[in-house]
Write a protein that binds this DNA or RNA. Structure first.
Length: 268
DNA sequence: AAACGTCACAACCGCCACCCG
DNA sequence: ACGGGTGGCGGTTGTGACGTT
């Protein structure tokens, strides 16, 4: 299966193995990393006795060999979360993957491209489905017929439509970032009304109960900062390990961890 | 049974940001 | 401040599996 490097015809390619990894190669890589750790990818293949480039080793380790990797069987809840996060973050697969324990950016990207991108599913659909899960809107909550993701507008791309607008989320995020906090509605992003309240009652929640709206109001930077903190994203747009471990002001939100439909949101 | 088409996903590629000397 | 090395990311491709005709 492993082919020799030939593309490009550069001497630098030095006939590296390419293509699918063999069990033997996997074993070598795992054994090496077990002892020496997963750093210095450039030098690793030589030291590990692998005829692969460092990048290939890194990819293989991160996507398949690393402990704790889940493979296949992406659940409906995970799919819902992927769609919601994708609506929020766009094609930032690594950020999305960071919110799905055991899933890799590559797997999520593949799943999106082969399954979800073709599905004309909107956030409204997800909320409706979620509401039905909570016994058909027992809280008297009727999902909003229109849950615009863009403030003050009715624009609501479907997943597939949204995919055709690669810059949409960037623009959206920056436009939101400029808004005063009073101009956006956290509830549009997180369907608080169909979540249990902070006491775990089925009465439905509100952002206010959680202090989330207040939190947003306190932060005049608006949407961007709030969502970044909700998602554990730091100012550089990367996952912030500290924020993930210690979400600020989120004592109440932590209570959601036990709620099956949202357990992924605030994992830490 | 063979040919062909489609799907799913592992792997590769190129770009970019960051780090460090 | 600068430049090379490195790691990380997202887009794309290659290919085996599976389904259909």
């Amino acid at each position: 299966m492993a082919k020799k490097a030939e593309r490009g015809g550069r001497k630098a390619a030095v006939m590296m193995n390419r293509g699918a990894w063999t069990a033997e190669e996997d074993q070598k890589l795992v054994e090496y990393i077990k002892v020496h750790g997963d750093k210095k990818w450039r030098a690793l293949p030589v030291k590990a006795g692998l005829n692969r480039c460092g990048k290939s080793c890194r990819l293989r380790w991160l996507n398949y060999l690393r402990p704790g990797i889940k493979r296949g069987n992406i659940s409906e809840d995970e799919e819902d979360l992927i769609i919601r996060l994708h609506n929020l973050l766009g094609n930032r697969w690594s950020l999305i993957a960071g919110r799905l324990p055991g899933r890799t950016d590559n797997e999520i990207k593949n799943h999106w491209n082969t399954h979800l991108s073709k599905r004309p599913l909107t956030i409204d659909d997800l909320n409706l489905k979620l509401d039905m899960k909570h016994e058909g809107g027992v809280h008297g909550h009727t999902p909003p017929s229109n849950t615009p993701l863009e403030p003050s507008q009715g624009f609501k791309p479907t997943v597939s439509e949204e995919r055709m607008l690669p810059d949409h989320n960037e623009e959206l995020a920056s436009s939101w970032a400029d808004l005063p906090a009073s101009e956006f509605d956290v509830g549009q992003l997180f369907d608080f009304a169909s979540m249990p309240d902070v006491d775990g009652n089925e009465g439905g929640s509100s952002g206010s109960e959680l202090g989330v709206e207040e939190y947003g109001m306190m932060h005049q930077d608006g949407y961007q900062e709030l969502t970044n903190e909700l998602l554990g994203v730091n100012n550089q747009g990367s996952l912030d390990p500290q924020a993930m471990c210690n979400p600020p002001e989120f004592d109440d939100l932590d209570l959601f961890i036990g709620c099956q439909d949202y357990e992924f949101y605030f994992l830490h």
